[in-house]
Design a protein around this nucleic acid. Structure first.
Length: 900
DNA sequence: CAGTGAGCGAGCTTCCGCTTGACTT
């Protein structure tokens, strides 16, 4: 039977809308984007792989034409949609009405290719029966200008990310990344840390007292603070700047301890009178209903949920029909929602809390796309939290959303704020004024339902301080007075919630990505969490420095906002996508293009980039440098002219702003870190210790201070079977005795056994042979050693690697194909060509057909040996780097994955 | 960053935004 096919983005939405449209309609979802640029080489179609721009999947030479693919996990879904389309007599593309939604609609059209049936673009902002039916009755055309704007955004992000990231691989560390959003987020965290490092603590003092209004007042005692001396204000926290120091223009008295205490003494006999009473009406309007970022902030402040936890809990609430869509930048409530909230206000708080007219909230977000409603309880009447039957996190998050929504339709809170000034004369003749402020809320309004949390210790909106009802001229006495010292505090580190807020304020990122932005910069190792604070790692300093020095425009805080302006122009048909992308990539008279920036890297000095002088409190250089190395951050002591500088590791979890000159000196004084005393060597009498070094744990002798120049401490790596915790003095004595002389060969040359870079081995002159186990170093006899030397050298190597699996014969070469485990992972070989298994292959699942495919691909590239010989040295060096950094990265990723 | 020798298959990392399940731990 023929039907009309409606495609929306979200499955949950499809279910709801299906119910509103009734029979005759089939509502399905696209589940987000259905096509994208290929993610990596494995997903890149063969026909563009070999193009110079194949890696980008954007033909930068021909109008920046993008090459889209349907990701593997979406293929079956696309077939399902195609199947549904076969029996459809009309197609409604009902994706979200924003830039991305318009593009999804176009991708659907382009991929499904409906033949001979009408296609409509249907849009709605509310999911109510009336709104959906009206939308279906009044469809529009696809807005191709808006699609162009989306493609421009997508292409620009790809060019930025996939061109700049490789620069970081070459200059900083393999596997790193750069992007329009993550790099700015990282920069924010790094810049904040730099502010903290430049911060110098200042102290200031003030006076606080408890005053007595006399027995005729109900509220007799009240607190007040010193306000001014002889008409000049006393310095308080707000007079100090971001650097911690008194602002240059501050016309204030800066009290120190002595002056403050002297003043307390001079005020011992002072009586006061009320100089002024200033009352102002206090009025506070409700907060707007939740959008993604405000929900994430409040869930963090009140429920202690991370952004990603908040989103997944909200997702479950959404899927089960408890709340509206949770990825939104809109604070707008539908008419039904306003009515539901108002009904609930009436019911729970009474008519006096209900404003005469419904409240509406305009979006504060500058680049808001408003495709959805605010986040609120779902339905035309709200369920109270108790009525939902929810538990745990879902209950608590629902309650938060429900309260916020209901409160948004309540009356303002009103009251009075009062400032009272008290004056008196000090014994020294100075005129002093104290100030007391109070707030009384006479009608709580929405505050009765919902009070927003605060990030620092700022007063909450419902906080009250009552003052006595004093009049000008009334006498007041001081019950107690004290001098209090304060210190200026550095700007606080970002938390997930405050960083997200900052990004939103700067129009960077979208509701669907805020939580994952945090994930990205954590996973790359740019930042780590210390409690809830985001602390930048030193490698982030290197990356931000490279980007600010060489890609200044791209990491500018305004880059995204400027891009949005251009995209809006494209969406209105006023600018052309190709010329904008061309300017971005190839440059113009006024701008350097990205392509030139990433190819002309000669002046990027990787070493300099990774070096940060450790500065003292006055910002002067100490001669000590922090450097970001392959093994993490380390310190280099001052150059004393000896040619070598003392080095020391910096603990991974030492926040950059805690690396003072004193701390650096302390670390340099004990460069090796912890060492374990094993005792005294029975023969030499020297102390023997175990340490962790560059190549892992090892033992070494401690040479006496009067040891002759040039004397070297003997060392030895621990065997793999040993560990720092369990190694004994006996083990150590044996290890440092190496190499062991096994005997003399037939040619008169000495054969020794030892441990090295590639494991245990025998050495005879320049001829070396691997051993299979570390125990052989001590156990092997001369006869066995001679036997090994009697065999040709190749043998030990080949014998060590039996194939993991035999697959049969290759159809092309006819040779047997086997799977082997190699240095770079598992690979298949037919004896001549080797091909590494790809991400989706495994030893268990691989077939001869797949192996033949891999070998055919490999064969197409020609023999490897010639290529390998070219610039062999350079390649070898690079390989080592890549391998080490990969090895280093793996555990970090695992740890991150475990947490989440 | 302790200091010791070879020779073995390269291939891939990465962006931002839109959506959920299908995975494993």
């Amino acid at each position: 039977m023929a039907h009309k096919l409606v495609i929306v983005e979200s499955p949950a939405k499809a279910r709801t809308i299906g119910g509103y449209l009734g029979s005759g309609y089939v509502v399905e979802s696209s589940i987000g984007h259905i096509r994208d640029l290929p993610n990596n080489a494995a997903d890149t179609p063969a026909k563009i792989k070999d193009k110079p721009w194949g890696r980008l999947a954007i033909d930068v030479d021909n109008g920046f034409e993008p090459y889209y693919v349907v990701p593997r996990d979406k293929k079956s879904h696309i077939s399902k949609l195609k199947q549904l389309l076969k029996d459809a007599d009309e197609l409604y593309l009902a994706t979200d009405e924003d830039r991305e939604g318009e593009a999804i609609a176009w991708h659907l059209l382009d991929e499904l290719k409906p033949k001979g049936i009408p296609v409509h673009r249907m849009v709605f902002h509310e999911i109510t029966k009336a709104a959906i039916q009206e939308a279906a009755a009044n469809p529009r055309e696809l807005d191709m200008d808006l699609v162009e704007a989306q493609e421009t955004r997508r292409i620009l992000d790809r060019l930025y990310g996939y061109e700049v990231s490789p620069v970081l691989w070459r200059k900083v560390m393999s596997g790193l990344s750069a992007g329009r959003v993550q790099s700015v987020a990282t920069r924010l965290v790094v810049d904040r840390e730099k502010e903290r490092m430049a911060f110098k603590v200042a102290s200031y003092w003030d006076l606080e007292g408890t005053f007595d209004a006399g027995s005729k007042h109900d509220q007799r005692m009240f607190p007040a603070k010193l306000h001014s001396i002889d008409g000049t204000r006393v310095a308080s926290g707000s007079n100090f700047g971001q650097d911690g120091q008194l602002k240059a223009k501050a016309d204030v008295v800066h009290l120190d301890k002595r002056r403050a205490e002297d003043l307390v003494a001079a005020l011992a006999d002072t009586s006061y009178d009320v100089r002024s009473v200033e009352a102002k009406p206090y009025r506070r309007s409700p907060y707007a209903p939740f959008r993604t970022t405000t929900l994430q902030q409040e869930a963090s402040r009140k429920l202690g949920m991370s952004a990603s936890v908040t989103m997944s809990v909200a997702q479950r609430l959404y899927e089960n029909g408890f709340i509206t869509y949770m990825r939104t930048d809109s604070t707008t409530l539908s008419g039904n929602a306003i009515a539901a909230a108002r009904a609930q206000v009436q019911e729970l708080y009474g008519a006096e809390y209900l404003p005469d007219a419904p409240r509406t909230y305009a979006s504060k977000v500058k680049n808001a796309q408003e495709a959805h409603e605010a986040i609120r309880p779902a339905g035309d009447s709200f369920r109270t939290p108790a009525q939902t039957g929810l538990t745990g996190d879902q209950f608590r998050l629902y309650e938060l959303i429900w309260m916020r929504t209901v409160a948004s339709q309540m009356k303002d809170a009103v009251g009075q704020s009062v400032t009272i000034r008290l004056g008196g004369a000090a014994g020294t003749g100075e005129d002093v004024v104290f100030s007391a402020s109070g707030r009384v809320i006479t009608f709580h309004g929405f505050l009765k339902a919902y009070v927003e949390g605060t990030d620092d210790n700022a007063a909450k909106d419902d906080q009250e301080t009552r003052l006595p009802n004093l009049q000008e001229g009334d006498p007041v006495s001081a019950a107690s007075l004290s001098a209090n010292g304060h210190e200026t505090k550095p700007p606080a580190r970002y938390t997930e919630a405050t960083l997200i807020k900052e990004l939103e304020d700067r129009e960077i990122g979208r509701p669907s990505t805020y939580a994952s932005i945090i994930g990205t910069i954590l996973n790359r190792g740019y930042v780590y969490k210390k409690g809830t604070a985001l602390v930048p790692a030193w490698i982030a300093f290197s990356v931000v420095r490279l980007l600010t020095e060489h890609f200044t425009r791209l990491i500018d805080y305004d880059f995204t906002a400027l891009m949005e302006t251009v995209l809006d122009d494209i969406a209105r048909g006023e600018k052309d996508r190709v010329s904008e992308l061309s300017e971005f990539y190839y440059g113009s008279e006024r701008l350097a293009g990205l392509q030139r920036l990433v190819t002309e890297l000669g002046d990027i000095d990787a070493k300099e980039l990774a070096t940060f002088p450790v500065l003292d409190d006055d910002g002067a250089e100490s001669g000590i440098d922090l450097r970001v190395g392959k093994y993490g951050p380390y310190l280099e002591g001052p150059d004393d002219g000896s040619g070598t500088r003392v080095r020391a590791n910096v603990p991974d979890d030492l926040p950059p702003d805690e690396l003072t000159v004193e701390k650096a000196k302390e670390l340099l004084a004990n460069p090796a870190g912890e060492e374990i005393d094993l005792g005294v060597h029975p023969e030499t009498g020297l102390q023997v210790v175990a340490k962790n070094g560059r190549f892992g744990p090892y033992v070494t002798e401690v040479l006496p201070e009067d040891a002759p120049k040039g004397a070297k401490a003997r060392t030895g790596s621990l065997f793999k079977s040993m560990s720092l915790d369990t190694v004994t003095l006996d083990d150590a004595v044996k290890l440092i005795s190496l190499p062991r002389i096994v005997g003399v060969g037939e040619d008169g040359e000495e054969i020794t056994a030892q441990n090295g870079r590639y494991g245990p081995y025998l050495k005879k002159g320049t001829d070396s042979r691997s051993l299979t186990s570390e125990d052989q170093i001590f156990g092997i006899t001369l006869d066995e050693a001679l036997k090994i030397y009697s065999q040709p050298k190749q043998r030990g190597r080949a014998a060590a690697a039996p194939p993991l699996k035999e697959l049969g014969n290759d159809p092309v070469s006819g040779q047997p194909v086997v799977v082997k485990a190699g240095r770079f992972g598992e690979y298949v070989t037919d004896g001549e060509y080797n091909a590494t298994l790809r991400k989706d292959d495994s030893v268990e699942s691989i077939t001869i057909e797949r192996a033949a495919e891999l070998l055919a691909e490999r064969r197409a590239k020609g023999p490897a040996k010639k290529a390998a010989k070219k610039g062999a040295k350079k390649t070898a060096a690079k390989k080592t780097t890549a391998k080490k950094s990969a090895a280093k990265k793996a555990p970090a990723k695992k740890a991150a994955a475990k947490k989440s």
